Amino acid sequence: MKRVAVLTSGGDAPGMNAAIRAVVRTSIYRRLEAVGVMKGFEGLIDGEFVPLTRSSVGGIIHRGGTILKTARSERFKTEEGVNRAFFQLKNAGIDGLAIIGGDGSFRGAQKLYEKGFPVIGIPGTIDNDVAGTDETIGFDTAVNTALEAVKKLRDTASSHDRLFIVEVMGREAGFIALEVAVASGAEYLVVPELPFSLGKLCDKLHDTRERGKTHSLIIVAEGAMSASALRAQLQDTAGYDARVTVLGYIQRGGSPTSFDAVLASRMGAFAVESLIEGKHGVMVGTMAHQMALTPLAESWQTKKRLSPEKLELVEKLSI
């Protein structure tokens, strides 16, 4: 192996740049050339390759977003697009490809692997919904960004005796919502993985009022329902007047936390070492704090589940 390429795909996540840096510098350390692919699979199809050096990745470890840019690619979903990408990689003399992204990106990686190209996945998504790793790059930062906002809203809720509903990101998964709910001491959690009971929520809010607590916080995962829809249901059913805050894309930006910067660095370096060792068609991850490899297909075929312990904590500690 002489030349390793790296690309970022799908939604950006804090820590992607740290992973790019680790891939590049580990490649150079192993006397390999490093190449960046601009704009994800779209750039791969068009052959948008740029050489990456030590200085190319200097000072990016704490930058949010991705210096390689990212984009969705409808063309890569076609056989023609995959074939074109495969040709571009071979034509550029690239011997291995590290793909940083979520399960959708890994589906694309699998297509290249099935054609015989050495690929490895690095899980970068704030949603933390990729099986095969305890945490994905960007998840910790997104949680802390959301938590900072929620803590400020708590102050306002307490001052004005308000009921607040906060909607967080996560696609069809409730990992961000669960983590924020536990850390913020939320009274109620709504996630896609659990059936929603409006009656149970109303009972909970009634009990808190009976105990003299005049402010409450509900955390809602975007994949379960919108905060506005929940507000309407509470208003129509029980007359509760709630304030709604949708945190949105702010959760995807900003400098990575130290946890994410370290995680991304470990994953990027391990990905290169694994490629050198001939381990392809896999995704790097951490299991019980140890580096691990998982077949790419498992990242989307296996359903990653919320922690039962943390779900129980929300119930126990919100009484």
Rank of each mutant, 00 (worst) to 15 (best):
A221M: 02
Q233D: 13
L52W: 09
M267F: 15
G199Q: 14
R30N: 09
V190Y: 08
T26Q: 10
R162F: 01
G138L: 02
F270Y: 15
I276P: 12
S55A: 12
L217D: 01
I176S: 08
T286E: 14
I250P: 07
S299G: 09
V4I: 15
E42D: 14
Q233K: 15
S255G: 06
A271S: 13
Y29W: 11
Q88R: 15
V24A: 06
S299R: 05
R75D: 12
I122Q: 08
A34Q: 03
L68C: 06
L275M: 10
F270P: 12
A149W: 04
I99F: 04
S307K: 09
R211K: 13
I28R: 10
A92S: 14
A5E: 05
A227D: 03
R231E: 15
L44F: 08
I120G: 08
I67Q: 04
S226C: 00
T286G: 01
E74H: 08
S158T: 03
T245I: 08
I165L: 08
V190M: 05
Y29S: 10
K111E: 06
N83W: 04
K204W: 00
V168T: 10
G104T: 05
K200E: 14
S299T: 15
V182K: 00
L153E: 06
I126C: 07
T286S: 05
R252K: 08
Y249V: 04
I99A: 03
T125Q: 02
L52Q: 08
A146R: 12
G239K: 07
G96S: 07
F49S: 05
D95W: 01
A297Q: 13
G268P: 10
A238R: 13
G101A: 09
R231P: 10
E193M: 05
D95Q: 01
G10R: 04
G47I: 02
L89G: 12
V190F: 10
V37D: 07
L293A: 01
G185E: 03
P51I: 00
Q88E: 14
G212L: 00
A13F: 13
Y113Q: 09
A292G: 01
H62N: 12
A238C: 15
F87Q: 13
I137F: 05
A224K: 14
I219H: 03
D207M: 01
R162G: 00
G43K: 11
S55N: 13
A146T: 09
V168Q: 10
K77A: 07
V82P: 12
E277M: 08
G138A: 04
V272R: 07
F139T: 11
A92I: 02
V180I: 09
A92L: 02
V191F: 04
I122R: 09
R3S: 11
I122M: 06
G138H: 06
T70E: 05
R154Y: 08
D155V: 13
D134W: 00
L153D: 02
V143T: 11
T70I: 02
V130S: 03
I61N: 11
G101Y: 12
P51A: 04
H289V: 01
T125L: 05
K304C: 09
